[in-house]
Amino acid sequence: MRALRPALLALLIVLLLALPVLSEALRQPAAIGLATQVLIYAIAAMSLNLILGYGGMISFGHAAFFGIGGYVTGILYSHFAEHSAFLGLVPGTNDMLIVLPLAMLISGLMAAIIGAFCLRTNGVQFIMITLAFAQMLFFLFVSLKTYGGDDGLMMRRRDVLPFLDTRNDTNFYLVCLTLAGLWLAVTRGVVRSKFGLVLGGLRQNEQRMEAIGIAPYPYKLVAFIIAGMGAGLAGALMANYLRFVSPGMMNWTRSGDLMMMVILGGVGTLMGPLLGAAAFVILESWLTTLTENWQFPLGLLLLALVLFTNGGLAGLLDRLWGRTR
């Protein structure tokens, strides 16, 4: 397996790059859209995996930052469309080069605030509190009638790039592919850095880390912020893909979906979230064609996965191949 890794990786990259051509050749135009979703969710899942898989922080509120990223995009667009300004101060925009960084910035800020509270606790309280804060934001956006409340916000067009027509689905796919690749590279760098070494240590034994003179809180908070920024980026891309944002983006079930992707792919692995996101999106779209009650088999599958395997799809494959860790 190990020796095959670079080859598999190269194959994956070629496939992803060739996907637009392939989908045309095989007359599967829907594939591009599906693949775009996979990449966007992969960014979100990778960011969750940083804190959950590497840092051991079980956040059940990650969709909050996904939603914030989406709303930054939607709100800026709505002001751009109406030629008005946010709070009468900040003019709207549809320039993706401004929107995406801003979405990351604001999501990171929210993550800093929420993380500052949540990380005062750990264990089961942390799970409950991240969930509760995400739900708080959900209700906040439901009550924000100015920005569509329950119904959300529509965007007439995607945000624009100066050198590329993002209305073309293939182009937008390539944008997402680039960003997903970049985010993967960032994650890889971070987990292998000194910071990443500390983060992994905190997952394994906080008491040990304190005993060598490393205070957990600031490191966990910074990881939480980075993760929030990743989710914000993904949310902004999703808003562009769907041309729609709604409080549903930060519903608690969405956090559960993100978690499921991380688990499906294998916790604490670099490529896991990408695999997991692909498995989830494909599974979901397949199940929905079979039955409108697709959550039922999904739930059963997840239950079976948790009870009978250890370590998600990757772990399952490892086991099938008889490799012990």
């Binding site: 959950l52 079980i58 059940f60 264990g123 089961v124 799970i127 559960g256 978690m259 499921m260 688990i263 916790v267 009650n293 959550q295 039922f296 999904l298 739930g299 059963l300 599958l301 997840l302 239950l303 996965l305 948790v306 009870l307």
Partner: peptide, 22 residues
């Protein structure tokens, strides 16, 4: 661990809610 507990009981929610809908 808590992660497994969260996921398994989350799966239960999906199953039970969907059953109720059906």
């Amino acid at each position: 661990g808590h992660l497994d507990q969260v996921l398994a009981t989350f799966a239960l929610i999906l199953i039970i809610n969907q059953s109720a809908t059906m």
